[in-house]
């Protein structure tokens, strides 16, 4: 079975390292916060100006002055801090935030990412994504393997205007975990019950496959 969005988030949560600062993008990445493994201490940064972001508030306790970058109501945890947008991006550009998890429309085998514009059709803007990908030490993309038309979002080269060059390190999709190596995408895990040939069929880039590809443990 291909993973659902929550399972993609759950798989990415396994990448979280103890005592690190992490920025989660809009969409599937936001869900990662729900699956932090036991014993791992993480502080989540949201680029609109909060570090130490907590879960969604209880019903009736929503505060319009406390939102994340996806404009969702949130809470803060003990030790949290609030700041302006320039300080926030100082944390990001200055590489104080160690991991960024982003959604994407396309990822190339060189680690280029496109997620802000479809010329003539959809222009939402890049938000903080260009700053995040320009500087983060580690960037993981969370996305569906194919778009609504069934076309692969994993490509040799991005067709859409890119958000950043040579920056993505790993991609977790509903079908697979792919690492970006100097030689391109390495298929390192497959979704439970999804075969290697199904993944190859859904991918418009070469996949480096060495030996048996293990199933993800979700």
């Amino acid at each position: 079975m291909a993973l659902d969005k929550n399972q993609i988030a759950k798989r990415i949560a396994q990448e979280l390292e103890h005592n690190t600062y992490v920025n989660l993008g809009i969409g599937i990445p936001t869900l990662v916060a729900n699956y932090i493994p036991e014993g791992i201490d993480i502080e989540f940064q949201s680029e609109n100006g909060v570090l130490g972001m907590g879960p969604f508030p209880f019903e009736g306790e929503e505060d319009p002055d406390l939102i994340n970058a996806g404009k969702q109501t949130i809470t803060t945890l003990d030790g949290a801090v609030l700041f302006d947008s320039a300080i926030s991006f100082a944390m990001i550009r200055g590489q104080h935030v160690q991991l960024t998890v982003l959604g994407a429309m396309e990822v190339s085998e060189k680690g280029d990412i496109a997620n802000w514009k479809i010329p003539g059709k959809m222009v939402k803007g890049m938000g903080g994504a260009m700053d995040l990908v320009a500087s983060a030490q580690n960037i993981i993309v969370a996305m569906m393997h194919t778009n609504r038309l069934g076309d692969s979002k994993i490509l040799k080269k991005c067709n859409l205007p890119i958000t950043g060059k040579n920056c993505v390190k790993k991609v977790v999709t509903n079908l697979a975990v792919l690492e970006i190596t100097e030689d391109g995408f390495k298929l390192s895990e497959r979704a439970p019950g999804v075969s290697v040939s199904e993944i190859i069929a859904a991918t418009a880039a070469n996949l480096i496959i060495t030996g048996e590809v293990p199933e993800m443990i979700i």
Binding site: P55, F56, P57, F58, E59, G60, E61, E62, P64, D65, I67, G70, K71, Q72, T73, I74
Partner: peptide, 12 residues
Amino acid sequence: EKRIEQRTTRKR
């Protein structure tokens, strides 16, 4: 008015 764009909550 302080409109909320995405009202997200969790159950008690």
